[in-house]
Design a protein around this nucleic acid. Structure first.
Length: 892
RNA sequence: CCGGAUGUGGUGAAAUUGGUAGACACGUCAGACUUAGGAUCUGAUGCCGUAAGGUGUGGGGGUUCGAGUCCCUCCAUCCGGACCA
C-alpha cells in the first residue's frame, strides 16, 4: 500500500470544510492566541513559491498552539483596493471589482491547495462595502478628533470646541505656524464666522485637509506618500515623481512621533525593523535660534542640533524656496539670486538627489551673531531643504562636512573653534573638543556647551530648545477611483478650490457606507482630481472626489477579523478586549515604514478615543525572508545593422556557449571572429553568413536572454522543450559543452518578466502539499532571504514516503503493531518531542523538520512499527504535514 | 557616507548556555536488488595526504584549560536610510 498523497490531501481538505474544522469562537475557556499573516494584495500574477513561506510558518505555529490548548485566531483576507487593479481597468476596460474578484478566487484556490487552517468565515476584503463602511467610520473619528498635547493623547474635537468657548485657544495653540490666525480669546472664537471656526478646527484635526507640496506622479495621475517614493520615482512602476501643490488630506501622524518611538521599546520587532522606523521618524533635538539681520526688520530663524558651535558660524544658508529670500536680497545680488532660484525650480527632485553639485548664491544680506556681533553672510543653496526645521541653517564649516565643502567651493574663510581636532582638510563633527575662539565658551567641553548656550538663548529670548522630526504628516488622499470614498461633503465652494474656500463636513455616520459609484472611465478628472470628479451626481452632491490610499484599509484589518460580521460597530469592545493584540504577526520587511507605522498610529488613536484597550497592534513581528528567483540565461548571437538596429538580419537562432559569451562580453565581435565561432558551432550556416562579409554597418554581439526556468534542469537546457517554448526558437542551434548546453544563472527577484517564477501549484501537484509545506520550512530559517531551488524537495518527499512505510509496506500492507516499545525507541520518541516542540516555539522550523527526519531514520533502522511510538510522532507532525498525519492517525 | 544584518563543505544548512564543528538534506562516488530505474536500500563523502598524520568556521590579533560562539581590527556580501543641519 503506497503513499497516495493526492487522494489523501483532497480527502482531508474536503473533510475540514465539511466539518468546519477551523472555525474559531470568540468565547472560550482556553487562553487566546492570535496569529496573523500580512494579508496579500490579490495581484493578477497569482502566488509564487515565495508568498506561502510566511503563511506556512504561521499555519504551523497556529496548529501547534491549538494542539497546546490555545484558542487560536488565524484569519486571512485580501488587501483589495489599490493601483494595479485600476491600471488594469484603464488598459483593459475591466471593472476593478471584477478583476479583483477573479484574482481573489485564484488566490483562494492556490491557498487551499496548501492546506491552511484559516477560519474563512472571518475573511475580510478591504473593497467590500461592509468592510470599508468601517474604514470610513474610523476616518470620521480621526476627522472628529484632535491631538491634545497637554494630555498627550487624541481627544474628541468637541472637547477642543468647549475649551475654545471657555478660554480661547490659550491652552491649545494652533499646531500650524503658517496659519494666519495664531491666537484668539473665547469672545473672538464666538464671534468668528462658521467658516472661520471650521478652518481653525481643520488645523487641529487628526485627519485634516491641507494645501501643500505633495509627491505628484503624473504617470499614475495621483499623489504618493513619502514611503511610496523611492529615489525620486514611484515605488510601483518606477515613474517620475515631482513636487506639486495640491489640496490633500493628511493624517497628523507627527503628533504620535514620540509615542511611536517609545512604543518600539515594548514590542518584539527585529533590531533592523526598529532601526528603520526610528530612522523614518528621525527625531533630533537641538535649538531654534533667531538671528538679527543687518538693516532689516526680519529675523533669521535657524534650526541646529549643535548650539555649542555658535561661535564657529561662518555663513548662513536658507532654502531658496523661502519667502524671506525676496525680502532680504540686496540690490546688487537680486539678479544672481533670481537666476539661482529659477535654476533650482528647473531641477527635479531626482536630479537633485542624483548629482549633488555644490551650488549657491550670496543674498547680499548679513545676519548678526548675538554673542559676538560678528556679521555673517547669508547664502541660499539647494542643499538646505525648505521642509525641514526652519528651512535655514547656521553653517559651521569646521564641524560639518557639507558646510566645509561649501566654503572650499566658494572660498569662505573658516573659523576654527575646535583647535587641533580640525586639520584644515576635513570637517570634524566631534563633540569631545574643548572650545576655542568661542567667547564665553572658551575652555568648555563641546558636549557640555550646548546646554549652556540654550540656557543663554532662552534667557535672552532669542532661542528655544526644539525637537524636530524628519517624519511628515502622512498624505492620505489619492486622485484615483479604486479606493474608499471619503465620507466628506464640501460646502459653499467648488470642490477643487483650495482650503480657505470651502468647508469640509463629515457625513452623518448613518449615511455610511458611502458607496463607491460606478464610473464610465477610470481616467483622471479635471485639474488633478480623481475619476470621481467626472461623475455629475457626485459633484452635485459636493462630495469629496479623492479616495483613500491603499494603507487605509490595511491600517485596522487585524481588528475586523475579531468581529467580522458586526453591523453595529467596527469591532465590539468586549471582543477586542478578549483577542487583544496580535501575538504573532508574520510578513515581509517591505512594510517597515508604511503599513506597520500607520497601523501602529491608528491603534494608538483608537486607544486614545477609547474604542480599543491596547496601544500597540502587534506584540511580536516575525519577518519572513524573501524568496528570490534563480534566473537562467541562454546566449544568443545577434546580428544587427547599424542603419536599422531593430531588424535582426539572421534568419535563425544561434546560441554560443556561456564560455564563448564570457570571452566577448560587452564587445563588438569582428566578422572573422564571428565566422570562427559560427563554424565551430555549425559549419552549414557559414556560407549564408558570408553574405554579410562586406556589410560595414554590421553589429555582431552575443547577448544573454532570460529563458524560462521550466525548460532548464539545474543549469542544463532541455533543448527539445526550449525549441518548443517559442516559435522563434524552433530551429535553434547550440554550441555544446560535453554534449550539453549549460545556461548562465543569476539571482533576481522572482518575477514574470525574468521567467524565473516557480508556481506552488506545480509542486503541490507533483509532490503533495505536505511535502511542499515541509520543504519550504526545510530551506532554512524563515527570516532569511534565499534563492529558490527545487532540487532538494525530493529529500523531503522521500522522508514522507519513509514515514508511510513505518505504517504500511507495499507488499505486506499494514505493518504497525501494538507491541510495547523498547527503551531505545522511547528515547528516540522523547528526544524528538522535546526538539520539535522547542524548535517550533522558537520559530526554528527548519531544524524541527530535520528532527522529524532523524526520528524516522532511527525508527526505520530499529524496524520500529509500534503504535504507541508512531501515534505520538503523528501528533507532533500534524502542524507540519496535517494531511498525512490526520490520515495515518485515522487508520491507527 | 551613515545605520542594521550576515560570513561555516561542491550546495541549502546545523551546532539553543564558550565544551566532539559540519547534524539533517541536496549533489557526487561506490555497491545491492532489478529486464529496466528518474523506485528502493547499503556504504563513503570538509580539505591536503596512499597512509600515519596534518589542517579547517572571511583575514589578522586577543581573552580562555577550551572560541564558529566573547573582545579588538580589517575585508566581503546583503538590506535599509541618505543633502534632515
Amino acid at each position: 500500500m503506497e503513499y497516495k498523497f493526492r487522494e489523501i490531501e483532497k480527502k482531508w481538505q474536503q473533510q475540514w470544510i465539511n466539518t468546519n474544522a477551523y472555525k474559531v469562537s470568540n468565547k472560550s475557556e482556553k487562553p487566546k492566541f492570535y496569529v496573523l499573516d500580512m494579508f496579500p494584495y490579490p495581484s493578477g500574477a497569482g502566488l509564487h513559491v515565495g508568498h506561502p513561506l510566511g503563511y506556512i510558518a504561521s499555519d504551523i505555529y497556529s496548529r501547534f498552539k491549538r494542539l497546546k490548548g490555545f484558542n487560536v485566531l488565524h484569519p486571512m483576507g485580501y488587501d483589495a483596493f489599490g493601483l494595479p487593479a485600476e491600471q488594469y481597468a484603464i488598459e483593459h476596460g475591466v471593472h476593478p471589482a471584477v478583476s479583483t474578484d477573479q484574482n481573489i478566487n485564484n488566490f483562494r484556490r492556490q491557498l487551499d491547495n496548501i492546506g491552511f487552517c484559516y477560519d474563512w468565515d472571518r475573511e475580510v476584503r478591504t473593497c467590500d462595502p461592509g468592510y470599508y463602511k468601517w474604514t470610513q467610520w474610523i476616518f470620521l473619528q480621526l476627522f472628529k478628533s484632535f491631538y491634545n498635547r497637554k494630555a498627550n493623547r487624541a481627544e474628541k474635537i468637541d472637547v477642543l470646541i468647549a475649551s475654545f468657548e471657555a478660554e480661547g485657544n490659550a491652552s491649545h495653540p494652533i499646531p500650524n505656524s503658517q496659519f494666519p490666525i495664531t491666537s484668539f480669546t473665547a469672545e473672538e472664537w464666538k464671534s468668528f464666522a462658521e467658516k472661520t471656526q471650521q478652518d481653525i478646527l481643520m488645523q487641529y484635526r487628526l485627519a485634516y485637509c491641507g494645501y501643500g507640496e505633495v509627491n505628484w506622479c503624473e504617470a499614475l495621475g495621483t499623489v504618493l506618500a513619502n514611503d511610496e517614493v523611492v529615489n525620486g520615482v514611484s515605488e510601483r512602476g518606477g515613474h517620475p515623481v515631482v513636487k506639486k501643490k495640491l489640496r490633500q488630506w493628511y493624517l497628523r501622524i507627527t503628533e504620535y512621533a514620540d509615542r511611536l518611538l517609545e512604543g518600539l521599546e515594548r514590542i518584539e520587532f527585529s533590531e533592523s525593523m526598529k532601526e528603520m522606523q526610528t530612522n523614518w521618524i528621525g527625531k533630533s533635538s537641538g535649538a531654534e535660534i533667531d538671528f538679527a539681520i543687518k538693516d532689516h526688520e526680519q529675523q533669521l530663524r535657524v534650526y541646529t542640533t549643535r548650539p555649542d558651535t555658535i561661535f564657529g558660524v561662518d555663513f548662513m544658508v536658507i532654502a531658496p524656496e523661502l519667502d524671506l529670500v525676496d525680502q532680504i536680497k540686496s540690490a546688487e545680488q537680486t539678479a544672481a539670486v533670481d537666476e539661482y532660484i529659477a535654476y533650482v525650480k528647473s531641477r527635479s527632485e531626482r536630479e537633485r538627489q542624483a548629482e549633488k553639485k555644490i551650488s549657491g548664491v550670496f543674498t547680499g544680506a548679513y545676519a548678526v551673531n548675538p554673542f559676538d556681533g560678528r556679521e555673517i553672510p547669508i547664502w541660499i543653496s539647494e542643499y538646505v531643504l525648505a521642509g525641514y526645521g526652519t528651512g535655514a541653517i547656521m553653517a559651521v564649516p569646521c564641524g560639518d562636512e557639507r558646510d566645509f565643502k561649501f566654503t572650499q567651493h566658494f572660498n569662505i574663510p573658516i573659523t576654527n573653534i575646535i583647535g587641533k581636532h580640525f586639520n584644515g582638510e576635513d570637517a570634524n563633527a566631534t563633540k569631545d573638543a574643548i572650545l576655542e575662539n568661542s567667547g564665553f565658551l572658551n575652555g568648555t567641553l563641546m558636549r557640555e556647551a550646548s546646554e549652556i548656550v540654550i540656557g543663554k538663548l532662552e534667557e535672552l529670548g532669542i532661542g528655544v530648545r526644539k525637537v524636530n522630526f524628519r517624519m511628515r504628516d502622512a498624505a492620505f488622499s489619492r486622485q484615483r477611483y479604486w479606493g474608499e470614498p471619503f465620507p466628506i461633503q464640501w460646502k459653499n465652494a467648488r470642490l477643487n478650490d483650495g482650503v480657505g474656500q470651502g468647508t469640509a463636513y463629515a457625513l452623518s455616520e448613518t449615511e455610511l457606507p458611502l458607496l463607491l459609484p460606478e464610473v464610465d472611465s477610470y481616467s483622471p478628472g479635471p485639474e488633478g482630481e480623481g475619476p470621481l470628479a467626472n461623475i455629475p451626481e457626485w459633484v452635485a452632491k459636493e462630495l469629496e472626489t479623492n479616495t483613500m490610499p491603499g494603507y487605509a484599509g490595511s491600517s485596522w484589518y487585524f481588528l475586523r477579523y475579531m468581529d467580522p460580521h458586526n453591523a453595529e460597530t467596527f469591532c465590539d469592545r468586549k471582543v477586542s478586549d478578549y483577542w487583544n493584540q496580535v501575538d504573532l504577526y508574520i510578513g515581509g520587511t517591505e512594510h517597515a515604514v508604511g503599513h506597520l507605522l500607520y497601523s501602529r498610529m491608528w491603534t494608538k488613536a483608537l486607544y486614545d478615543l477609547g474604542y480599543i484597550g491596547f496601544k500597540e497592534p502587534f506584540k511580536k513581528l516575525l519577518n519572513q525572508g524573501m524568496i528570490q528567483g534563480s534566473s537562467r540565461f541562454v546566449y544568443r548571437f545577434t546580428l544587427t545593422s547599424k542603419n536599422n538596429p531593430s531588424v535582426t538580419l539572421f534568419p535563425f537562432q544561434i546560441f554560443p556557449s556561456k564560455n564563448t559569451y564570457d570571452n566577448y562580453v560587452g564587445k563588438n565581435i569582428s566578422f572573422d571572429e564571428a565566422k570562427e565561432i559560427f563554424e565551430r558551432i555549425n559549419t552549414t550556416y557559414g556560407y549564408e553568413f558570408d553574405a554579410f562579409k562586406d556589410d560595414n554597418s554590421l553589429e555582431i554581439k552575443i547577448l544573454p536572454i532570460h529563458v524560462d526556468v521550466s525548460v532548464v534542469d539545474g543549469t542544463e537546457l532541455d533543448i527539445d522543450a526550449f525549441r518548443k517554448s517559442k516559435p522563434e526558437y524552433k530551429n535553434s542551434v547550440f554550441e555544446y559543452t560535453d554534449g550539453k548546453y549549460i545556461c548562465g544563472s543569476e539571482i533576481e527577484k522572482m518575477s514574470k518578466r525574468y521567467f524565473n517564477v516557480v508556481n506552488p501549484d506545480d509542486l503541490v501537484n507533483k509532490y503533495g502539499a505536505d511535502t511542499f509545506r515541509m520543504y519550504e520550512m526545510f530551506l532554512g530559517p524563515v527570516e532569511q532571504s534565499k534563492p529558490w531551488d527545487t532540487k532538494g524537495i525530493e529529500g523531503v518527499h522521500r522522508f514522507l514516503k519513509k514515514l508511510w512505510r513505518l505504517f504500511y509496506d507495499e507488499q505486506k500492507g499494514k505493518v504497525w503493531t501494538e507491541e510495547q516499545p523498547t527503551t531505545e525507541e522511547l528515547k528516540t520518541l522523547h528526544r524528538t518531542i522535546k526538539k520539535v516542540e522547542e524548535d517550533t516555539e522558537r520559530f526554528s522550523f527548519n531544524t524541527a523538520v530535520s528532527a522529524f527526519m532523524i526520528a524516522v531514520n532511527e525508527l526505520s533502522d530499529l524496524q520500529c512499527h509500534k503504535k504507541e511510538i508512531l501515534e505520538n510522532i503523528l501528533v507532533l507532525l500534524t502542524p507540519y504535514a496535517p494531511h498525512i498525519a490526520e490520515e495515518l492517525w485515522q487508520r491507527l
